[in-house]
Amino acid sequence: MEITGTVTTARAAGLIACRRCTTVWPAGTATCGRCGHAIASRDQLSLQKVWAWWIVGVVCYVPANVLPMLQTRTLGMVENNTIIGGAAQLADHGNWGVAIVILVASVMIPIGKFAVIAALAISVRHGSGMSQLRRQHLFELVEYIGRWSMIDVFVVALLSSLVQLGALAAVAPGPASLYFAMSVVFTMLSAQSFDSRMIWDPDTIVSRADRLRRLPGQPG
């Protein structure tokens, strides 16, 4: 069932909505009376928080790729592998499938998340050619995928605890695992800080409104 009715926002009605339990309160309310969540018509600091976490996330992502993720000792030989190095080695051994999975999960998805969050944050201020619904879906996708990037860290943990066969073979976590985990957490916090209601607020987009004023014949 779809709730019918014309779309008015809580803000346009002079009300403040609780993003956690969906109740609405008169303007000026600071705390939701039902669930106790702090409420605001729009989180004024949202974009600042998004960018702050985003920057720390990107900064952590650099050592996560430069430093070794996994240290493998086999019969006296020690080998330090970075994420990309490990994937390249797998590809060298003809294991293309796993190599591609690793590259997609550890390189393409994190970079994609950074790109999408940045694009969404920029679009709030400067408008976007993409429809609001599509941007909303992108945001939900990033929010959903965020936690799954932890897979790499869990794989390192599992391999390091499982492959402990004395002199035969032993795996230990490398410093990159720590940075990778931090990067994932900060990216999740960045996405969580984004107030998706801003996607739907037409009036925050300054440059776009100007553009429309200059071209009055253009459909909005």
Partner: peptide, 13 residues
Amino acid sequence: PADLIACPRCDAL
């Protein structure tokens, strides 16, 4: 306001 709800994602009332 007691019988109103707003979408947590887009603020629609």
